[in-house]
Nucleic acid binder design. Structure first.
Lengths: 235, 235
DNA sequence: TCAACGCTTCGTTTATCATCAAATAATGGA
DNA sequence: TCCATTATTTGATGATAAACGAAGCGTTGA
């Protein structure tokens, strides 16, 4: 088989991989650059998780998406900008109104949202970075990757905020670790510590949780507290 | 069904229409902007004419190609530049070496080639235009569309060249008409007159026919003759 | 260690599609 | 008018693929 015939085949296989409604929904959903789990994508594609899994495998086989983190959650995201370009070119042909999608990241989710039981988004990343630069969090040497310890200095600061560090340590779960934030592509604070911080923030009304979504809204009081307590100048 | 869902479906159908090897070969072949008949495209796609017909219908249904002239021959061509763009974007993903195809019209066929038994290509169009502007060819009023008559002036000129106009007229076929040249998108001279001109050109060694192809090569003698007899300054 | 959860793989059913040969339609020329 | 050329439609067949439920695998947290 010569080079041209191989290109024909490759192109036809790629186009065929795109050429299915559920997979188009998946790809469109990933166009904002965020990574998502297969369950999320199954819901978006309106198919069962098993079917979605097959679709995701096929898209991956054609190098349209990539699998980003192996662990409890597996995150799928677009392979690269060329994929977005191709989708855009095709959507012009489709005559749809969707060809302005590149920066369509939902802003309300981008700033602050829950990641299970802790804070993700721009705010989550900012808090995490601040705690590290203050020296509150230090790399854990016990072998667990991405795990953190809280320094003496950090313990004082957290105590001052009103977090019961002893009780937090006693929970039977990972204490503190760098939880990858795929929308920011940077880490935020996860684990029992992260949960404690969110719990505190909600209790103190620094932020409120929108019903039915993962979105978090920073209150104006919370904004001031972020500034005075962490030196964070937000927005 | 909302607008987004409709776009999803349309896009998936379009991608699926591209997503088949034979159809990719057809589309690639049409990328040079030329229009081709279904038989030509069947050969390119390496399928039987009936299969090609199905493929062409599908591509047409998705508005990727268009059908250009209804008559004995039906010419298929790309619908527009957006289609070429989409194919290019996809071919980047395919990693092929083919993404420099836009101006890939085969030059040797573009300049001069046979169209059945007369001259097509740039040269054919130039000759046709010259004969019209010299007043040799006039529009035929008998109702046959695109048909030409030869003027008294034209008869003299052709006689001088060595064409037996009487014999040409007696052939039982269309005498002279504007034959659409889909590579130039302009007309050249077809019919018995067109055949007579090619026959003469070959006899006088103004041009030679490449074996096994439709390509015609203008000899240097032919080039001079085009200049002295028709005032055509070629290349 | 076990239980829960998220995700994938397997097996089956159903539907779509690619292909060709044969039949049909349309056109131009004799 | 009829014939030759060209193109499309139809019908049969085999292959591919989409969908789901059930079962399996691996990680996390109790």
């Amino acid at each position: 088989m010569d080079a041209e015939a191989r290109t024909d085949l490759a192109l036809s296989r790629i186009a065929a991989a795109i050429g299915e409604a559920a997979r188009v929904r998946i790809l469109y959903c990933l166009l904002d650059g965020h990574a998502r789990t297969s369950t999320e994508l199954a819901a978006v594609a309106e198919v069962t998780p098993s079917t979605a899994s097959v679709h995701l495998n096929r898209l991956r086989a054609e190098r349209l998406i990539k699998l980003s983190a192996i662990g409890k959650h597996r995150y799928y995201s677009l392979q690269g900008g060329e994929v977005a370009s191709a989708l855009e070119a095709l959507s012009v042909l489709a005559g749809g109104t969707r060809h302005k999608f590149v920066p369509s990241a939902p802003v309300y989710l981008r700033f602050a949202r829950t990641c299970y039981d802790h804070i993700a988004g721009t705010l989550g990343v900012a808090l995490h970075d601040r705690m590290k630069s203050l020296g509150w969090l230090t790399e854990n040497s016990s072998g667990h990757k991405n795990a953190y310890d809280v320094s003496h200095q950090g313990a004082q600061g957290l105590q001052t905020l009103g977090i019961d560090l002893v009780a937090t340590r006693m929970l039977h779960r990972r204490f503190a670790f760098a939880c990858m934030d795929w929308s920011e592509r940077r880490a935020h604070l996860g684990g029992a510590m992260g949960a404690a911080v969110l719990k505190l923030a909600l209790k103190r009304k620094w932020m409120v949780q929108e019903v039915g979504t993962r979105a978090l809204s920073l209150t104006s009081f919370g904004r001031r507290e972020m500034h005075t307590r962490f030196g964070l100048q937000l927005e």
